[in-house]
């Protein structure tokens, strides 16, 4: 597979995955660049991977964790939760409500739900990507879904 194809196919997936946790578009852009540069350099490894998506997402996740750690040390502790920058297109009105509710959940839980429902990742894949035990992912997903359901009920009521 040529790098350009991999990039075009997965850049939006990684972008949306990172967006569940980070709100600063510059930080997201930076991590996207780091991630795909690592992909570019390790392109021959691609053939050995069962799931390209999980492989790329685990690179992105590790880069994200490193970046958050680094940024926190550099006197900007709340950068990860900074408001969204205007370079990202706004969401349509209809999905704003859900987006608003999702923001009430911890970033890690949002990533788990996004991974399960949208990226269709298995619990085991998510566990590998996020460096967490599969049981933890399951339990977090269960509680996040429950919390979200309660919020949606409140919102509807």
């Amino acid at each position: 597979m040529v790098f350009e194809e991999v990039y075009n196919e997965y850049v939006d997936i990684v972008f949306n995955y990172l967006r569940q946790r980070l709100k600063d578009s510059y930080l997201i852009e930076d991590i996207l660049q780091e991630t795909f540069y690592a992909v570019y350099r390790n392109l021959p490894e691609l053939k050995k991977k069962d799931s390209i998506k999980s492989w790329i997402l685990s690179i992105a996740h590790n880069k994200m964790v490193d970046k958050i750690r680094k940024v926190s040390k550099e006197t900007l502790p709340d950068l990860a939760e900074k408001e969204a920058e205007p370079s990202i297109d706004p969401l349509p009105e209809s999905t704003l409500f859900l987006e608003e509710i999702l923001q009430k959940l911890p970033g890690e839980d949002r990533q788990i739900l996004y991974g399960l429902y949208v990226l269709q990742l298995k619990y085991s894949e998510l566990a590998e990507i996020m460096n967490l035990p599969e049981g933890t992912i399951k339990s977090k997903a269960y509680h996040a879904r429950k919390e979200l359901k309660d919020c949606l009920k409140e919102g509807a009521g």
């Binding site: 350009e4 990039y7 850049v11 939006d12 972008f15 949306n16 967006r19 852009e29 996207l32 660049q33 795909f36 540069y37 570019y40 370079s87 990202i88 297109d89 969401l91 349509p92 209809s94 999905t95 859900l98 987006e99 999702l102 739900l113 996004y114 429902y117 949208v118």
Partner: peptide, 22 residues
């Protein structure tokens, strides 16, 4: 279905810029 609708597409210019930088 609703969660899928929250998906965003990265701005084309940003996409191209990242690609060129890599």
């Amino acid at each position: 279905r609703k969660l899928r609708d929250t998906n965003l597409t990265l701005d084309r210019n940003v996409k191209d810029r990242i690609y060129q930088e890599i």
